[in-house]
């Protein structure tokens, strides 16, 4: 490699920058010019070849699944562990991308890398609102979302003062939307607490809450709810109270292009997902024993998390329209997305 580079460098040095000696060395100059043209041509050819080989690779059927961490994604871990997709879709290469939030999954889907994405219901609506050509494919799971506080005197958001900080996962996440709804109900202004929000991962927020920093409220999900409650903290409200009904928390989303042009893959994928969810609901104990090593906890602990109050695995979307209306009223969405544009079929 280095030798080649040196050769190329020498080669370039041979080519004069200015046409000083055109008359004396006209012939030599011609050869040098021809040689440099040839080099350029070769470079272009290599580039094009690489590009073509890349696109050729894409033609081979490939399914990339973008999902996140936690027991809410257990059906996907089961599909992955058992190779269910490889079995149901022979000849298709399956790839799994476990990412830290909805944004990188959305970006991966926009540039065509990720085929099927899994995330909270709110980021999907925010994407639609901004022209992202995707729709809900189905639900994955529902679980409790709770507003937890460490101070006993705080029973409602009205009891917070301006120095209290509230930890959420990220701006625009489902927890943020629920908090805004609660703020609208209790304080009369959905964005009243915006200046007090801090974006943190769940484990960081648990630590902050336990160590008595300025963070005094955390909007969170299992298993962090149990952890915080076991340290004497209390629930101010939970998702079902705020929305008035249970709702799908994690859902699956696909691009319109996949649905229209790759229907067979789409159908097979979601059939397999439904199978995995059925299996979890029928044999929860066996599945938790099987997946315990994936999550790095004991089978009992996983079983407890998978059956915790409010945890449901189902493909049936619930409460999507209510969530859209809530987000519209809190200013998270600009357009009232028509109901028929939300879900495929």
């Amino acid at each position: 490699m280095i030798h080649d580079a040196l050769k190329t460098e020498k080669f370039f040095r041979m080519i004069p920058r200015k046409r000083k000696h055109k008359t004396e060395y006209g012939r030599v100059h011609f050869f040098r010019k021809a040689a440099s043209r040839l080099l350029l041509l070769m470079l272009t050819a290599t580039l094009t070849a690489t590009l073509f080989s890349c696109t050729a690779k894409k033609e081979q059927q490939r399914v990339v699944i973008g999902y996140q961490f936690g027991t809410a994604y257990a059906p996907l871990e089961l599909m992955k562990a058992r190779g269910m997709l490889e079995e149901n879709m022979p000849g298709v290469t399956v790839e799994w991308r476990q990412l830290g939030g909805p944004t990188p999954i959305r970006e991966g889907m926009l540039n065509g890398e990720i085929t099927f994405g899994f995330m909270g219901v709110c980021p999907v609506l925010i994407g639609m609102d901004n022209g992202m050509p995707w729709k809900y494919a189905c639900a994955l799971s529902a679980n409790e979302v709770a507003v937890i506080t460490r101070s006993d005197s705080v029973q409602s958001l009205k009891d917070l003062n301006e120095n209290d900080r509230i930890a959420i996962l990220s701006p625009g996440c489902t927890q943020h939307v629920l908090l805004s709804l609660l703020a609208k109900e209790q304080l009369g202004d959905a964005s009243a607490l915006d200046a007090q929000l801090v974006s943190m991962t769940h484990p960081d927020a648990v630590n902050a809450l336990l160590s008595g920093t300025e963070i005094s409220v955390h909007v969170t999900t299992p298993p962090y709810i149990q952890k915080e409650l076991s340290h004497g903290m209390h629930r101010m409200a939970d998702g079902t109270d705020i929305m008035g009904e249970p709702f799908t928390f994690i859902c699956s989303v696909a691009m319109e292009e996949t649905y229209e042009n790759n229907r067979e893959t789409y159908d097979l994928f979601y059939e397999t997902l439904a199978e995995a969810i059925d299996e979890i609901n029928r044999n929860t104990e066996a599945v938790s024993a099987e997946l315990a090593p994936v999550y790095g906890i004991s089978p009992e602990a996983l079983y407890e998390q998978m059956t915790y109050n409010g945890t449901i695995y189902s493909t049936e979307l619930q409460g999507i329209e209510a969530m859209r209306d809530a987000m519209l009223s809190c200013g998270f969405l600009r357009n009232a997305i028509p109901t028929e544009d939300l879900v495929f079929e």
Binding site: N130, G172, Q196
Partner: peptide, 23 residues
């Protein structure tokens, strides 16, 4: 990487929010 600082944060948190809201 770690989210906004202070009440509304600086340019970094602006970039992060714009990214999250797909703007």
């Amino acid at each position: 990487v770690f989210g906004a600082v202070g009440a509304y944060g600086g340019i970094g948190s602006y970039l992060l929010t714009r990214r999250t809201f797909m703007d």
